[in-house]
């Protein structure tokens, strides 16, 4: 079923094209639903304080039980983690979670807008909505990864980012607790990367290495 196999074997040795696009990236987007929370949790926990890109996380969770994932993560991780606030300026050094029950949009001036419009595919926040909105602002300079989940949210978003020449990857459906979401994305577009769990960690690590070396090189 899965024809593409652009696995990244050694991530200290990124494929040239991918490395070039990582170098130009301005934002990292992560999306997941059922079965992906643990992975996102561990990824954020592993981010260095000086991670070179702002990170936006869209997860589906019920507004009923106010989850405190971001508070917990903020106290445990080196990077700052928070719920995105309306009209807050996006900055690196922060991981922003979309608040439950709102769509998260990015304005061309680089600040967030929260939106109460209709759920999309029963989801609010919708991964598609945020991925599309962020791509409208950062164009090709977007890296987006989609993990485990029980519906097809995120697939259109990845395709949209890809149409703008952004870099898109999914968790290998074999490795995902619930494979519907990565499968849908693979069905909808030619994803650049299909990553095992450990490859996801090293890919994100390599983003830091690549971009921080660019920065060091300049100084």
């Amino acid at each position: 079923m899965i024809k593409r196999k652009i696995f990244i074997k050694k991530l200290n040795n990124l494929n040239k094209d991918i490395e070039k696009r990582v170098r130009e990236a301005k934002v990292l987007l992560l999306g997941c639903s059922a079965g992906g929370f643990g992975l996102v949790y561990d990824l954020v926990l592993g981010l260095p304080e000086d991670f070179p890109l702002p990170v936006i996380v869209i997860i589906h969770r019920s507004k009923k039980y106010r989850s405190s994932m971001e508070e917990l993560l903020d106290s445990k991780s080196r990077i700052s983690v928070k719920l995105a606030e309306d009209k807050e300026q996006i900055k690196k050094g922060f991981v922003y979670f979309a608040p439950p029950d709102y769509h998260l949009l990015l304005e061309p001036e680089g600040f967030f807008t929260l939106d109460t419009s209709e759920p999309v595919m029963y989801c609010r926040p919708s991964i598609d909505v945020t991925f599309q909105s962020v791509a409208d602002v950062y164009q090709e300079n977007v890296i987006a990864l989609l993990f485990s989940g029980a519906n097809a949210d995120g697939a259109d978003g990845l395709a949209y980012i890809q149409a703008k020449k952004g870099l898109v990857g999914v968790q290998n459906p074999e490795a995902a607790e619930v494979r519907t979401m990565p499968d849908a994305a693979i069905g909808r577009c030619q994803v650049d990367m299909i990553l095992s769990n450990s490859e996801i960690f090293s890919f994100i690590g390599s983003i830091a290495t690549v971009l921080n070396s660019v920065k060091d090189g300049k100084d």
Binding site: P108, E118, P119, V120, M121, Y122, D128, Q132, A135, D136, D156, A159, Y160, A163, K164, R188, C189
Partner: peptide, 19 residues
């Protein structure tokens, strides 16, 4: 009434710019 209209044609391609 939640109107769940899908963004079919625009889902994967940009249709208008901010300008």
């Amino acid at each position: 009434e939640l109107r769940n209209r899908n963004f079919l044609s625009s889902a994967t391609a940009d249709t208008v710019t901010f300008e």
